[in-house]
Simulated assay, not measured.
Amino acid sequence: MSGFTRVKKTGVCAATFSAFEADLLRSLAGQLIELLRNEVAAPETLDPLEQLLDFSGPTLVPEDPVLARLFPTAYPEDAEAAAEFRRYTESDLRNGKAAGAATIIDTLEEAGLDEQPEDGVFIDVELGPQAAVTWMRSFTDMRLAIATRLGIEEGDEERWYALPDDDPEGQVHDIYEWVGYLQETLVHAAS
């Protein structure tokens, strides 16, 4: 397992993933997209002009705790201002997060990740500056989703390290840590 490095000659951020790792990232990105699309953020309309001028987005905090964490209340002390802010911003934020996750999937597949990844295959990924930022943001969203589902809190590392290797929650926590490692190496490579 290696993270991202900067290619001095081209300035891109590069990483090599095993087929398993690349497929895991694709799965996490796909799950994030599915989660973002699960609750309708705004009514769909067929007229493109009407869609551009439509500001009838959601006004309530999402029911799913992960979505509530990804889209926190902007003004907790002012319910009316929070509802207005959510109405005008959440649909675009959801679309942006879904597009970022889709970029990860597209990049991995363009780099050679097949539908049925084979053992011994490696996927080389190179990210320019904009793609690197997109991946960093998506890594943040993935980590927030996993942390919320598992109930990860600051300072609770001993709890996770004490779990047996075959504990499913411990395995998901390992994925959380791995995505954090990828994010950290990508930040350093892009700097």
Rank of each mutant, 00 (worst) to 15 (best):
P65R: 10
Q130R: 14
N38V: 00
F85G: 01
L46M: 06
E110G: 05
N95S: 12
E44S: 13
P65F: 06
E77T: 10
L46T: 12
A82C: 07
R86E: 02
S56A: 11
G112R: 14
F85W: 15
Y75R: 07
L52N: 04
V40A: 07
E110Y: 03
R37I: 01
R37V: 06
G128Y: 03
R69Q: 09
N38K: 14
P58H: 04
A81S: 05
A131P: 05
A42G: 07
E118K: 15
T89F: 09
F55H: 13
E84G: 06
V125Q: 03
L60K: 15
A99Y: 03
F122P: 00
P58R: 15
E77S: 09
L113F: 03
T59K: 12
N95G: 11
D114T: 14
E44K: 14
K97Y: 05
Q130I: 03
D47T: 07
L53Y: 06
T134K: 11
G100K: 03
F55C: 00
A68R: 12
I105A: 02
V133G: 06
R94H: 08
L127I: 11
D119S: 11
A132L: 05
F122S: 10
L49N: 07
V40Q: 11
P72A: 10
A68K: 11
A83N: 02
D54S: 13
D114V: 09
S56N: 14
I105M: 06
E84I: 09
E118M: 13
L93Y: 06
A102D: 09
A98F: 03
F71G: 03
T89N: 12
T59P: 01
Q116W: 06
A68N: 09
L113P: 06
D47G: 07
F85Y: 15
N38M: 03
G57S: 04
A131V: 07
D54L: 12
D114R: 15
G57T: 09
P76T: 12
L60A: 14
Y75H: 13
I105W: 01
I104P: 02
F85N: 11
T73D: 10
D47Y: 04
I104A: 01
F122D: 06
L60F: 02
D54A: 13
P76A: 10
P48E: 03
A101F: 02
G57N: 00
T59A: 03
V125G: 02
D54T: 00
S56F: 01
F71L: 13
E80K: 13
A131S: 15
R86S: 07
L108N: 08
D54M: 11
P76S: 08
V125T: 04
A74Q: 13
V133A: 10
D54H: 10
V125I: 13
I105P: 03
E118T: 06
F85K: 11
L52Y: 03
V125D: 04
P65A: 08
L67S: 06
D119T: 08
V133Q: 09
Y75A: 12
G120H: 08
D92W: 08
L60Y: 01
A132S: 15
A42W: 02
